[in-house]
Design a binder for these strands. Structure first.
Length: 942
RNA sequence: GCCCGGGUGGUGAAAUUGGUAGACACAACGGACUUAAAAUCCGUCGGCUUGAAAAGGCCGUACCGGUUCAAUUCCGGUCCCGGGCACCA
């Protein structure tokens, strides 16, 4: 709207000091009165669904939450200003293990503990001033939510997407209970201290592998996801191309006919296989143990039962094995290869058996070295082949011809040595070459790269792909194998022998088998007034819960007492927010309006599991006709971890007790490094552990409440956003909180000083000049407007495209510093000052919305900042005639030049050569080359 | 062990497409104001070095090497730190 005259007014006095407590209270009440963040489907604006990963209600917020939710709120508010119809919901990932741990420790039912935590944390979240539509709040432990999860389960069970099989879990033999990986510490149960064993139990599985290809290919349709996350997911799914190879049993030692199946991605190394290895759970291992007279095999298999199921433990375990005494035949040569049982072979991947090629595989090499198994080199690198050629040439020059036919690479050294001995006078060059070659062969580690096949019979001389094709074709022709592909991804086991989770809706009937609970009997409600005792699942002891008639035949049957993995709840909550009150289905039509999520924000620690499961669930729901589209999250921002040091003491049983950083005094050396820590309570030392993500289990979360109480939510938000860009991990420190507070005070004061003189209409190109004929902007005012509009353009880009909120804040700080130096008091200068202050209030609005609300009310009485769009940069203010360019000599900075923006290459070159600093550097020499980058620099190369 | 990130002043960081290394802050130090303190404002602030000063020079982005007129940025290798590894969420 053009304004015809410049208005000046004075009004009630603005509060001289920045008082966050009252400002924030007022702003939050105002938003609530206006229902400002209620999201409605009816809108002529484009929708923007901004979702932050919902918290687990662990008790209190920690800094990681503040970071996550502030980022989400900044993006929400920014998009609102950019004209979007924004929906930002919040809820609670409320089932989970910590509630059971709290129950054990405090004798409180998990439900009561959880609901109390939710109430407290909701209050904390509200005090941060987040623009959330609280009418959509979702809590996963309520029957209204999980009944639909049970409903979907029964559908998928009937479809065969969910099935039952046995799988290994960590078993605590003392507490007689299944342990989570986190509860296994150094191979022992966290409470009993007893060595953990693997135990096979029946579990329900989601057939996620059926969607493996789609989950992999879908990654290519997600340009708004970080490359890093897509790479991690692709590697996790782990599609590989390889070959199934069958090794025929040796009748004599195995005692029957048959084939040992292995899968390998390196069939080109088949000729280097010197043994095969099977997992301890492999049928052939059991058979060997059964027919063996000695107990060693049985003992070894039993030993492999010790320890937990975590992959990291398996992979770092010392490699151990035992010879079964059985043999299989090599599918090409027929040579007898020994069958070993090895603890590094995983039953869960491939066939549970591998062909071992020590010369070209790290783990096989280590194993072969330990048990003195033969190593056969069959792949030669390019460098090795080059050396061999040189050798041949040198031997030729010295008058000998080398016989390279079928030469075993390890045998070569002996052979070459012998030839050398036989020569009357070998040249020094030859001796050196042989030594070099020998050194290359006796590598400490195997050569695992691709190369040319050697010592491989008819395959000798072939490259990787050629050999791959030839060998698999030959095997197929003889019925001993064929090309094949595999995924590393395994089906998703969701049964948990725990209380505080969503009951699995299955009834076991002796007659009918596993019967899914019929729709009309859903939900299967979890009894809430229960305190687990740590020994097995409470549900399995509650007859009232598990005794039930079979829905099919009506006979007495038993309800399943396992609950679901909590990842199941978090796999579809994003869809439920669209229709949180729907009582007729998981979601309704509104899901089609809001999905996909436009921006998802959460910790990088969820890069694989949660995000993969949620993508999988979206496809399941799509196939049920519940949602549209193939992917749930269009754009993803993975926030870096907020990490903090951990502190602990060990009790008599080496169990650790963790202390919060707030309970500890840390001593540092003169360089600021921690050298020791003591507990405030008793002054005695505690150990300093590693620095890790803030988590309940290590008690290193830092509560933001103290900062909010002392400085206000805006300072907490500003500080968190200013500390680092969102994707970067951040070691927690509150140094700098006061700096953030100081900045807000400076903004307030600048506005106050201006308002005290009377507010005016903000400068708009050309207008004040028309109103006050003869007035013009001073050079300083023009420069300030240039900086203002450069800042607007930058902040817009930082908040929108780059999502680097720290630099957006820094640019505003620079602008405020520039405004503070601008002391012109002419009427036209005051319109520029007004323009700058209004722009700062708007640019900072997404980050410090309470302050922005209050400032706007002072700068533009009667109008609401919620209705303001994000400012636009004024092109006329950005126009510049002159720019600064850099002069380098040999790439080093030697001076600057201010030149016309239009200066061409020749002019720039001339001006640079005439620069005194350049003349001094050149000292009469003639430049070899001059590189001119217009608008940037001139580099003179001497 | 495997997969994915990160490493820049005393500290958090900036440098957006290979083009001025250290913006903006914190801390520290010096000064102004004050009876004093707090608050606020002004100034200094990577290392070494030449110079009385003005003003220069060299080195410097974990480490080693490479590509380039030019590397924090690209490539190869090493070390350290963080995340994930399927039952923490």
């Amino acid at each position: 709207m053009p304004h015809s005259k410049i208005q000046t007014s004075t009004r009630k006095i603005m509060q001289p000091n920045y008082q966050p407590a009252s400002i924030e209270q007022q702003a939050q009440r105002h938003w609530e009165d206006r229902q400002a963040f209620r999201a409605a489907e009816q809108s002529d604006k484009p929708k923007y669904y901004c979702l932050s990963m919902f918290p687990y209600p662990s008790g209190k917020l920690h800094m990681g939450h503040v970071r996550n939710y502030t980022i989400g709120d900044v993006l929400s508010r920014y998009h609102r200003m950019k004209g979007f119809n924004v929906m930002q919901p919040m809820g609670w990932d409320a089932f989970g293990l910590p509630a059971e741990n709290a129950a054990l420790a405090n004798n409180v039912p998990p439900a009561a503990w959880t609901y109390a935590n939710i109430d407290y944390m909701r209050k904390q979240l509200k005090s941060l001033g987040l623009g959330i539509d609280w009418s959509r709040e979702v809590t996963t432990c309520t029957p209204e939510y999980y009944r639909w999860e049970q409903w979907l389960f029964t559908r998928l069970f009937k479809k065969g997407i969910i099935y039952k099989k046995t799988a290994s879990v960590n078993w605590d033999p003392i507490d007689q209970t299944v342990l989570a990986n986190e509860q296994v510490i150094d191979g022992c149960g966290w409470r009993s201290g007893a060595p953990v064993e693997k135990r096979d139990i029946p579990m329900y599985f989601f057939r996620i592998t059926q969607y493996a290809d789609e989950l992999l290919q879908g990654l290519d349709t997600l340009p708004g996801w970080p490359e890093q996350v897509k790479t991690m997911q692709a590697n996790w799914i782990g599609k590989s191309h390889g070959c199934d190879i069958h090794f025929p049993y040796d009748m004599e030692t195995v005692g029957s006919g048959g084939m040992l199946k292995v899968y390998t991605t390196r069939p080109d190394t088949l000729m280097g296989a010197t043994y095969v290895a099977v997992a301890a759970e492999h049928p052939l291992a059991a058979r060997a143990a059964a027919i063996s007279e000695k107990s060693e095999l049985r003992d070894f298999i039993a030993e492999c039962k010790h320890g937990g199921t975590a992959e990291a433990d398996m992979a770092t375990m010392e490699k151990k094995g035992i010879n079964t005494g059985m043999f299989v035949g090599h599918p090409v040569t027929g040579e007898k290869l020994p069958v070993w049982i090895a603890n590094y072979v995983l039953m869960s991947y491939g066939e549970g058996a591998v062909m071992a090629v020590p010369a070209h595989d790290e783990r096989d090499y280590e194993f072969a070295a330990k048990y003195d198994l033969p190593v056969k080199h069959v792949i030669a690198s390019t460098e090795l082949l080059d050396k061999w050629k040189k050798l041949e040439a040198q031997f030729g020059a010295d008058g000998h011809e080398l016989d390279r036919e079928d030469l075993d690479l390890m045998g070569m050294i002996a052979y070459l040595g012998k030839v050398l001995m036989d020569m009357p006078a070998p040249s020094e060059a030859l001796i050196n070459l042989v030594q070099e070659f020998a050194g290359q062969l006796q590598l400490e580690s195997p050569y695992t790269g691709q190369g040319t096949l050697v010592c491989s019979g008819k395959y000798g001389g072939m490259e990787f792909q050629e050999a791959f094709d030839a060998i698999s074709a030959d095997l197929q022709a003889r019925g001993l194998g064929r090309k094949s592909g595999k995924f590393r991804l395994r089906d998703w086991g969701i049964s948990r022998q725990r209380y505080w989770g969503c009951p699995i809706p299955i009834i076991h009937c002796f007659t009918c088998g596993d019967v899914p609970v019929p729709d009309e009997q859903l939900p299967v409600k979890l009894p809430e007034n229960v305190v687990p005792d740590g020994a097995g699942s409470p549900l399995a002891k509650m007859q009232d819960f598990y005794m039930t008639p079979c829905p099919q035949c009506g006979k007495a049957a038993k309800r399943e007492t396992d609950t679901m993995d909590t990842f199941v709840e978090s796999s579809w909550y994003y869809a439920r927010y669209a229709s949180p009150d729907c009582t007729t289905g998981m979601v309704d039509e509104r899901a089609k309006h809001w999905l996909p999520v436009d921006q998802y924000i959460g910790g990088i620690e969820h890069a694989i599991l949660h995000l993969l499961y949620a993508r999988f669930f979206h496809k399941l729901m799509r196939d049920e006709g519940l949602v549209q589209g193939d992917e749930p999250f269009k754009n993803l921002l993975t926030q870096g971890m907020v990490v903090a040091p951990t502190f602990y003491r060990e009790d008599a049983h080496d169990r650790k007790q963790w202390f919060n950083p707030s309970e500890v005094d840390v001593k540092t050396d003169e360089r600021g490094r921690p050298v020791g820590a003591t507990l405030k309570a008793d002054g005695l030392p505690v150990f300093i552990g590693s620095t890790e993500k803030m988590a309940k289990s290590k008690n290193n979360g830092v509560d933001p409440q103290a900062i909010i109480d002392e400085f206000g939510a805006d300072t907490a938000r500003l500080f968190m956003m200013f500390a680092a860009p969102p994707e970067q991990s951040l070691e927690w420190s509150d140094a700098g909180v006061e700096g953030a507070f100081r900045f807000l005070k400076r903004v307030w004061k600048a506005a106050h000083d201006h308002v005290e003189q009377g507010i005016v209409t903000a400068y708009r190109s050309g207008e004040p000049e028309n109103v006050w004929p003869g007035t013009r902007l001073s050079a300083a005012a023009k420069a300030l407007r240039l900086q203002l509009h450069q800042t607007i353009a930058k902040v817009d880009d930082d908040l929108g495209r780059r999502k680097t909120f720290n630099t957006a804040i820094a640019a505003n700080m620079e602008l405020l510093n520039a405004l503070a130096k601008f002391d012109e008091q002419t009427p036209i200068a005051r319109t520029v000052a007004q323009e700058v202050l209004e722009a700062i209030a708007l640019m900072l609005n997404p980050i410090v919305p309470h302050l922005s609300h209050a400032l706007w009310a002072e700068l533009r009485p009667g109008s609401d900042v919620l209705d303001q769009p994000f400012p636009n940069a004024d092109p006329s203010a950005l126009a510049q005639d002159e720019i600064e360019i850099v002069i380098q000599v040999n790439g080093k900075l030697r001076g600057n030049l201010t030149v016309a923006k239009t200066a061409d290459k020749a002019t720039l070159e001339q001006l640079a050569l005439a620069h005194p600093a350049v003349e001094k550097q050149l000292a009469g020499a003639v430049p070899k080359n001059i590189v001119v980058v217009p608008g940037r620099l001139v580099n003179i190369v001497v």
